[in-house]
């Protein structure tokens, strides 16, 4: 009780701390959310490196570094505080995961910089961007460098002794009409599920994405409604169109899109009903592009299109408050 005098002085001096309620906080900060998502993304990251070799690793590191540096520079330019909250790292990583394995590094740098500078910071930074930055970056590259962005390769098998990078074989995207798989149907499903197939470095392994997605759902960091309804809509639609349902679900960017892109907090609706509409819409657009569009794959564009609808969905799909009573307006204009 030796500092009793200080206590009396302090209270009498009237120096008190004032804050709004609540006076306690969960401590679960934005940065924690981001780093947990980053940790979970280590799974598709590992799959990317496993199947596409060191080049995939370089692509990821370059993209993440570019994203971080761009964010820092833009924040300084805008004279806004820079927080190391991990959001730029997630954008960089997700962006790299949807790139083809052999895209030139300078293109990846341009794309990652576009993701952060234009798709995110130009709209006001984290929380204000309308479009998913990683997908916006990918769409930008797809328009600027269509050839590089559609050159697919078989997994590099870098772990096979005596394999040289020059041996890489080109392949058509599994979703394109010219794709031919040499093997049984079951072997194809197996390769699609584990990721031993041509495609963007992070999207091929459905297994890695599925495990990561389930972890995020279990931690209540993402809403199960978006991936389940998105994938469910595509599956049901493929059934109606007479496509191979399992093939449609496992190939292309659907898995990574549904679990990691469409669930992006900032660019998806906040209410349960809104998310159902969002995921359903994305599923329908994916189906339309895959079946009738000129592109073999449409997940990225379907999510970007639905991103544009998000503010509208949040405006019109409002939950009714607790104990809501509908006011009935009669024909004579009087409220009942």
């Amino acid at each position: 009780m030796d500092s009793k005098i200080d206590e009396a002085k302090l209270i009498d001096s009237g120096e008190v701390y004032i804050a709004h309620p609540p006076h306690i906080w969960s401590g679960f900060s934005t940065a924690k959310v981001m780093y947990i998502v980053l940790a979970v993304l280590a799974l598709p990251f590992a799959a990317a490196v496993y199947f596409f070799g060191l080049r995939a690793l370089y692509l990821i590191i370059i993209s993440m570094a570019t994203a971080l540096i761009t964010e820092f520079a833009i924040k300084k330019l805008r004279k806004k505080p820079f927080y190391m909250d991990g959001s730029a790292l997630i954008t960089g990583l997700l962006f790299a995961l949807v790139l083809p394995p052999r895209i030139p590094f300078w293109m990846a740098i341009i794309g990652a910089a576009f993701s952060i500078a234009i798709a995110k910071e130009a709209f006001g930074g984290l929380g204000f961007n309308i479009f998913n930055p990683a997908l916006a970056g990918r769409a930008f590259l797809a328009i600027c460098f269509p050839t590089a962005m559609t050159s697919w390769y078989f997994p590099a098998k870098w772990f096979v002794p005596g394999y040289a990078a020059a041996d890489a074989l080109t392949s058509a995207s599994p979703l394109s009409e010219s794709y031919i798989y040499e093997g049984t149907r079951a072997a194809l499903y197996k390769d699609l599920f584990f990721g031993n197939i041509a495609g963007s470095i992070g999207e091929t392994s459905a297994l890695a994405i599925l495990i990561g997605g389930i972890i995020l759902i279990a931690l209540k960091l993402i809403d199960w409604k978006i991936p389940v309804i998105f994938i469910g809509t595509v599956a049901l639609g493929s059934l109606i169109f007479g496509n191979d349902v399992l093939f449609q679900v496992l190939s292309g960017g659907l898995m990574i899109g549904a679990f990691f892109m469409a669930t992006d907090y900032v660019t998806s609706p906040v209410t349960g009903a809104g998310r159902i509409i969002f995921a359903f819409g994305a599923g329908i657009i994916t189906l339309l592009i895959r079946n009738f569009g000129s592109l073999p794959e449409g997940v990225a564009f379907s999510i970007l299109i639905m991103n544009a609808f998000t503010p509208l969905i949040d405006k019109y799909v409002r939950p009714k408050p607790f104990g809501f009573v509908r006011t009935i307006v009669k024909k004579d204009g009087k409220r009942k």
Partner: peptide, 25 residues
């Protein structure tokens, strides 16, 4: 209140979730 450290404290009337900070003693 017992011994308090020498820094401004938040004196809250009510619970931590809904109480309000008082401006003086």
């Amino acid at each position: 209140f017992g011994v308090l450290k020498e820094k401004p404290y938040d004196f809250i009337f009510g619970g931590p979730m809904t109480g309000f900070s008082v401006a003086n003693m």
